[in-house]
């Protein structure tokens, strides 16, 4: 079947098999391999993209379901060589180690910040509870968000400082 959708501001019209997941479609049909597959079944969040404004696991969505949708993926974050603010904050706070979880983490954080400019540590934890990171221990990721959003007094909410 043919689907038409907007990914990172570009309109694509593309053939897809009816049983293809959005994750496969993005990676294999559109060549956008920034979005990762960890578990392929909704556990890890590596495949998180923003679908019509909401963070979802793209491994559990069919490409057929997103006909007409607006999608944001990690590829839409940087413009040429310059990183987005969220990416810069991740880099500055050592929130990236192996980097496999990062595309999904960034998308979850992006959805959070779209509706909440100065989240609390608890709110950040809620937003990324569906994203596994096996490297950082999460603290640097939360610090990156707090660093970026600058909530006064937020440092005190972090356990290790």
């Amino acid at each position: 079947m043919k689907i038409k959708l907007t990914v990172n501001g570009l309109v694509y019209e593309h053939e897809t098999a009816e049983h293809t997941t959005l994750l496969r479609f993005l990676r294999e049909d559109l060549g956008l391999t920034g979005t990762k597959e960890g578990c392929g079944m909704g556990e890890c969040g590596a495949c998180t993209v923003i679908l019509n404004g909401h963070a979802v696991n793209s491994c559990m969505v069919l490409a057929a379901e997103v006909d007409g949708a607006v999608i944001n993926t990690i590829e839409g974050e940087s413009t040429g060589p310059s990183l987005s603010d969220i990416q810069k904050a991740f880099e500055a706070n050592h929130a990236v180690q192996c980097g496999f979880c990062t595309p999904g983490m960034v998308m979850s954080v992006k959805e959070l910040l779209a509706g909440n400019k100065q989240p609390s540590v608890e709110e950040v934890k809620d937003a990324i509870e569906g994203n596994f990171c096996r490297c950082t221990g999460y603290t640097q990721i939360i610090e990156a968000v707090m660093d970026l959003t600058g909530r006064p007094g937020a440092k005190g909410e972090l356990e290790h400082v």
Partner: peptide
Amino acid sequence: LASHQIRNR
């Protein structure tokens, strides 16, 4: 119920 991404879907 589950995680934020799952609750969105």
